[in-house]
Computed example of a mutant assay.
Amino acid sequence: MQAPENTSYDVVIVGGAMYGSSVAWWLSRNPDFNGSILVVERDPTYEFSSTSHTNSCIRQQFSAEVNIKISQFGAEFIHGFQDFMQDDDAPEIVLQSYGYMYLADNEAFAQTLRETQAIQQRLGAGTKYMSADEIKADYPFYNLDGIIGGNHNLINEGYFDGGTIFDWWRRKARAQGAEYVHNEVVVITKNASGDRVESVTLASGEVVSCGTLVNCSGPRAARTARMAGLEIPVEPRKRYTYIFAAENPLDRDLPLTIDPSGVHMRSDGKYYLAGCPPDDDPAVEYDDFVEDHSLWQEKVWPVLATRVPAFEAIKLMNSWAGHYAYNVFDQNAIIGPHTQVSNFIFVNGFSGHGLQQSPAMGRGVAEWITYGEYRSLDLSSFGYERIEKHTAFVEKAVI
């Protein structure tokens, strides 16, 4: 454990993975913010963080306008990464635009795809609704028995190297003055009236005063909130990823295909990637990353071989279980201040959208801390108030 250099900070960020580092980077680069930043990370290897288990995908195929705009800025950030970093050594980040292919096997979902395509197109996305025949013409390797149609977008939609972005955010945040410590917040203390966080106590014993506390603790978000006497509907849920080789590789890239079964698959360099939620999807312990190996044999592989007959002969190369920070209320992010404890800021509950949304969400939270308002993109619809009022954020395209 590391002790922090000081006993008081303007901003204390709990969790230093993708979101903690995004907020720290955006804050530390803002000329209008001149405060001190402490990032507290319990595991600096990030071995079990959601950041380390991400599939690094981005899509514009959402139904809510703000989610589409968030991803559009994410694509802008990826393409302009070197300019954003303002560093000649920053690498180019390539967005592999294979696109998402949502497949519909019933008319109700097909109609939903048509409606969301219209919204996406109005906002400038390249999504097209395709009939089964049109899909077959472009991607003849699919077995489309039972499929009515699908949505596909080949522009700024696919996967990218999220690990490099995270690494640069963390490195540049430090260079810009943010302090990272290997430690853990174990107590959060509020003032006498209970409307502000005054300090945090670290596992190593230090008491650190803070002006603003930011909860970036991923699947552990509820545990962090409860230290302040707050509740948030976020829990860790397992998601499984598989890397496999095909004896007969496809003759073109495989879009990130969302099968009606819930299994998804895509090209991944010379290999292929697949994933899915378990059929029984409960909350799990924070340190439970044990794989259910029957899922591959009984669910994933049969779906792959059915949807893409060339995948009847494949070899599993690697697999892992990671955690979604799953918002059980409406599967969308909870961003911004608590309604009563005004300096407790949520950056939680992304439910699998986290990496692609991290550029826009980190920017927005940094704006809120600096200015008391969102300036680039209005993120108020993700506020905690909706949790208290039981008013769900409606997003039809959740994987």
Rank of each mutant, 00 (worst) to 15 (best):
E198A: 04
F109S: 10
I258C: 13
I119G: 00
S56W: 15
M101G: 03
Y142K: 12
M1E: 08
P260R: 07
R59P: 07
T54I: 03
G15M: 06
Y326W: 11
E184S: 12
V328A: 13
Q111H: 08
E298I: 03
S381W: 03
R122K: 15
S49N: 07
Y271N: 15
A225K: 00
G211A: 00
R220A: 13
G177A: 01
A104Y: 06
A333K: 00
S294N: 15
D259K: 10
Q297V: 14
S319R: 12
G158F: 03
A310Y: 06
K396V: 10
E198F: 06
A228T: 05
P44S: 09
G35Q: 07
V207R: 15
Y98C: 14
V187W: 01
F141W: 00
Q121K: 11
E395L: 15
S204I: 04
P302L: 11
H53V: 00
I387Y: 09
F382I: 07
Y9T: 08
A17R: 14
P278L: 01
Y159K: 02
Y286T: 10
L123Y: 11
F62M: 05
P282V: 06
F382W: 01
E179D: 05
T164D: 05
Y139R: 13
S193T: 10
Y9G: 09
V23S: 11
I369P: 09
G194Y: 03
I335Y: 11
T241C: 14
R171K: 10
H323G: 08
T224M: 14
I148P: 01
T112P: 01
S8L: 04
I243E: 12
E47D: 11
K389D: 12
G322N: 08
E65G: 03
V263Y: 04
V207T: 13
L250N: 04
E247N: 13
M101Q: 14
N156R: 07
I399C: 08
F109N: 12
S351V: 04
F311M: 12
V208H: 01
G149F: 03
